[in-house]
Nucleic acid binder design. Structure first.
Lengths: 231, 231
DNA sequence: TTGAATAATGAACAGTGTTCAGTTATCTTT
DNA sequence: AAAGATAACTGAACACTGTTCATTATTCAA
């Protein structure tokens, strides 16, 4: 045995100990993946980053189960051993996008000392992210579940984490506002930033270029904050 | 001949004079629509309202060319004589949704005397519309064109018309702000309202019920307006 | 009545998500 | 080492999707 790896599947499947062999070079008649080349979690990881790449390059529409499968050297059937369905796969990709977004906002605001400036920077980070990864970012909102299927808890947590970041930035400026009001203000403000972003991306704002969007965001936040702090 | 109708197709096709016969009761072997039962524009209209109904009831996903076709008693092929493709059809439906939305906002703000109250009412009209026709409203933003295809001018006009309504509501409160600033404020404010709306619909705001969304919208507009007018 | 024109069809094509019987390859036990 | 059990993986099948276009059916003009 070359190496042993403990694979812990996340989908209520049984845990299983699997042996993973080094690639031998032999690739079969059609270079198809051989049994136990990869653990379930490895396949999961490969599929997710392959899907991510496809979405990044060709958007939500240019994305399909067969494309993801062939990109990682497996067939469709295997995908369905690792994911419940395509909605599940997409939700995972969206989760990772939220992770990247959150990490970026966290990183870029850290350098900022002033509370107000820090909050504005959060907005700008968001816009820049949406501009650099429009397809991945957009899929979070384009994708809709089959008829009123509730969003899973773990995903809701990732969203809440973003609002928490805004709340934290808002708190120093809040004066004597109650925590509840701060929470509401964070939601309102951030929805506003998001609204600008999505209308700009879907070509409904009649603005051109990233800078105009940044200006608009700045304008919204600036006025809101004056209203919020000035009374 | 029973009646003659001038049919003016809108898609750079030739204009054609067509005769339309009253329904005879004979429906063929499979009750399929007979030649010249309807003019091109009538088919267009039938298809649009059938599509609208499907979207309203089953959402963007439960919508297909064949379903629309069979709902109006024709086959797929006929749809492609009247529309360029499905994207075209969807865009037309979206245009009509924007028309209804605009009409409603125009109607409901008229009753309001106070400028500030009128503006708030605009926001509430928007939220209520999105809540009553979530699928139709959502499709305006869910739908994305094939790879960077520009939004047609006539559609942009319908969007601009909505922003103009906000601008008009904002103008009496603008003090010595320039028209350019008013335009920017209208975009910022309205994007904000829209952002709240879309995050609420896609279940990412952790708020429940229409009232909470209304409150949040009110909160955003209120603070923004205080910031906008107070300096 | 014949011929041209056009309205409408429906089969065909290449793609989609999803399932699952069947075929391996690997592990365990004898 | 051979056989049996187990799990990995395939790939064909199903019912869909958007789109095209040769055929057919109907109507109008000559």
């Amino acid at each position: 045995m070359n190496s042993v790896q403990l694979s812990l599947s996340q989908n209520n499947k049984h845990c299983s100990i699997k042996t993973r062999y080094a690639v031998t070079g032999w690739q079969g008649e059609h270079s198809m993946a051989r049994r136990s080349d990869h653990s379930r979690d490895e396949i999961r990881e490969m599929a997710l980053s392959a899907a991510e790449k496809i979405v990044r390059e060709h958007g939500y529409k240019g994305f399909s189960a067969r494309k993801v499968a062939s990109a990682i050297g497996y067939t469709v059937g295997t995908l369905y051993l690792v994911f419940d369905n395509l909605d599940d796969l997409i939700l995972q990709v969206n989760g990772r996008t939220l992770d990247r977004l959150h990490a970026r906002m966290l990183r870029e605001q850290a350098a900022c000392g002033q509370a107000a400036a820090r909050l504005l920077r959060l907005g700008h980070s968001y816009i820049r992210f949406a501009n650099e990864e429009p397809h991945c970012w957009g899929m979070i909102f384009e994708h809709r579940f089959a008829q009123n299927q509730a969003t899973p808890e773990w995903f809701q947590v990732k969203v809440a984490r973003m609002f928490a970041l805004v709340e934290a930035g808002l708190a120093p400026l809040a004066g004597n506002h109650s925590p509840q009001e701060i929470a509401q203000a964070a939601r309102a403000l951030w929805s506003g930033v998001h609204g600008i972003c999505i209308l700009a991306v879907t070509d409904k704002l009649d603005v051109v270029g990233v800078d105009s969007v940044q200006d608009l965001t700045h304008y919204l936040m600036d006025n809101f904050l004056r209203g919020f702090t000035g009374s």
